[in-house]
């Protein structure tokens, strides 16, 4: 059983390596964020990429879609975008005298919601049901979305003009919020050299298919999580709620997200079990966007990522065998010290 599971994780590792290598042809020096993004997709979640314009958010989404072999649709969110422009509308057909549902761009494998915070909250909320339930309801009729279905949304920081802050419920639907970040000087030079001619995204082909993604997701779900690591993750979420600088902390969905991403990171590393290092690597992306800071903390310039780092510094990691106890299944010879 264990060998079989390790074999599955090995296949996930190989699958991930192909995808990461393919994306790296387009994005220079963004291996870490690409890895986290892929972990989010493997964990069955949706991603929110936030950063300044021109840092490669859209390119990361396009490269991931192309590499994963998913159907790809892009919606440029603008203030006048209506919910029906995303989900689809019912159109009256005079010939038949009936309304016919015309699916919107959301009926695809990977939807890029570009600059999502430029649309009104009403349109943003049109994505809620699709992201949470994998379905769209229009005129009282529910339409199931194809699987796998992934939303990658990008947004500019809310300090920029002409943006609407995503509501908490919407933010909570995103498994991870990632920041691509500016490249280093060397990376930018390499990027310039690589993009001097035709853009590689135009020729980027798939290295896997939707079925591979579904299989990889199943393998990720089988990654083992020990009981005390589950407690550790739940404790991290709870600690965000009791943190002095936090008005609204992470809920049970945050703990679930933490577990899913940690499992995916373990599978990406070819492991059949989660390490606390996986949890720590997942925590900033999973927790930070779910925190609402107190007003005094915001005024003091505290960022949610700093709160998460503080929580990680405070919460004890389950690492030692219990003092005087033993590990599950451990046989202590007679007379031996524990």
């Amino acid at each position: 059983m264990t060998n079989a599971k390790e074999g599955e994780q090995g296949r996930v590792q190989g699958y991930a390596a192909r995808v990461l290598e393919n994306v790296a042809r387009v994005l220079v020096g963004k291996e870490d964020v690409t890895r986290l993004a892929l972990a989010g997709v493997l964990a069955g979640g949706h991603l929110l990429l936030e950063d300044a314009p021109g840092t490669g958010k859209t390119m990361l989404a396009r490269a991931l879609a192309a590499s994963l072999g998913l159907g790809f649709r892009r919606v440029q969110f603008t203030p006048d975008l209506l919910p029906g422009d995303v989900t689809g509308v019912s159109v009256y057909r005079p010939a038949t005298g009936e309304f016919e549902f015309v699916p919107g761009p959301i009926f695809t494998g990977l939807l890029l919601a570009d600059e999502i915070n430029r649309a009104t909250p009403k349109t943003q909320s049109a994505l809620l049901e699709a992201m949470g339930e994998g379905q769209v309801t229009e005129s009282g009729v529910t339409h199931v979305l194809p699987q796998p279905f992934v939303v990658i949304a990008t947004q500019n920081p809310i300090e920029h003009e002409g943006t609407y802050r995503l509501p908490e419920a919407q933010l909570d639907r995103f498994l991870l919020k990632l920041s691509v970040g500016y490249p280093t000087l060397e990376e930018e030079v390499r990027m310039l050299a690589r993009l001097q001619g035709a853009h590689p995204i135009d020729t980027l082909g798939p290295v896997a298919g939707p079925a591979d993604l579904l299989a990889a997701r199943a393998a990720v779900q089988a990654v083992r999580v020990s009981d005390d690591l589950r407690r550790y993750m739940a404790a991290l979420s709870a600690r965000t709620r009791s943190h002095a600088q936090v008005a609204l902390g992470g809920g049970p969905r945050a703990s679930l997200a933490l577990q899913g991403v940690a499992q995916a990171l373990a599978a990406l590393a070819g492991r059949g079990f989660v390490l606390p290092d996986d949890v720590k690597a997942a925590a900033p992306g999973v927790l930070a966007h779910r925190l609402t800071l107190r007003i005094e903390a915001r005024l003091a310039g505290t960022r949610p990522e700093e709160v998460v780092a503080d929580v990680l510094r405070q919460e004890p990691v389950p690492a030692d065998p219990a003092a005087g106890g033993r590990l599950p299944g451990e046989h202590v010879p007679a007379g031996a010290a524990l």
Binding site: M1, T2, R224, V225, P328, G329, H331
Partner: peptide
């Protein structure tokens, strides 16, 4: 339902 059942380790080696 998806949890990997805890494998049975070599208890002496584990100790």
């Amino acid at each position: 339902a998806h949890a990997d059942p805890a494998p049975v380790p070599d208890s002496a080696a584990l100790h």
